[in-house]
Amino acid sequence: MRNVNTIFQREIMSYFYSPIAYVVISVFLIAAGFFFAGNLQIHQEASLKGSLDSTQFFLLLLTPVITMKLFSDETKSGTMETLMTSPVTDFDVVFGKFLAALSLYAVMILPTWIYVLFLTIFGNPDFGPIFSSYIGLMLMGGLFVSVGLLVSSLTKNQVVAAVIGIVSLIILWVIGYLSEYGDGWFYEALRYIGTYDHWSSFTKGIVDTRDVIYYLSFTALLLFITVRNVESRKWR
């Protein structure tokens, strides 16, 4: 666990040394602010539901940008070799990087609390759905980050990692909509795999264990595959 912490610290440091953290956070806050203001104007409703729905799309675009360099950069610059010949396990490295990216994600969505502040000043929002939305946001963030992390471990090109990451997340998002076109186990499965359905129950104020389990297990599975993939240099 100490090694996880060491890796975590370095990655966080590296985020804030490079412009990535600042760019991603700024872009996200501009977009989120725009959607918040827009939704407020249209619906005149003291809730975050509408705006968070739209911001989800931006999280989808921006999370792979956060994760793109995590492994690609190390493979490309060769630091993978120094890293993997130090006394750390592959899991330490993967999990440390995962936590770092997830923390940056958290830092990114943290300032949106100011919207809640506005809502309480000028209206009377229901805090239940707001809380559950943030729980949902973090769980979804874990999934998005683990997708990006896996993709990053597959290529040494950061741009490729970002693009494939974004495409994968979009597919994961729209796959849920496809379930509306039919019945039966196949469409039911699509609905389950897609992120949208699980996410929307959080915005309604429902913290369903099924959704929690969906996010956690999916994240764990992707992290597991990433560890295996990092390991695969040994048997490829």
């Binding site: 100490r2 090694n3 060491t6 890796i7 610290q9 370095r10 440091m13 590296s14 040394y17 490079s18 610059s77 060769g78 630091t79 993978m80 070799e81 120094t82 890293l83 010949t85 130090s86 006394p87 750390v88």
Partner: peptide, 29 residues
């Protein structure tokens, strides 16, 4: 890995860190 010090060809380093920080990171690792 605990017993060896390995300097790969081309000396890969984290170029965004300061030398002291890098060594501190490696020392922890």
């Amino acid at each position: 890995r605990q017993q060896i010090g390995y300097l790969p060809e081309n000396v890969p380093l984290y170029l965004d860190m300061r030398a002291y920080e890098y060594l501190m990171f490696r020392a922890k690792l």
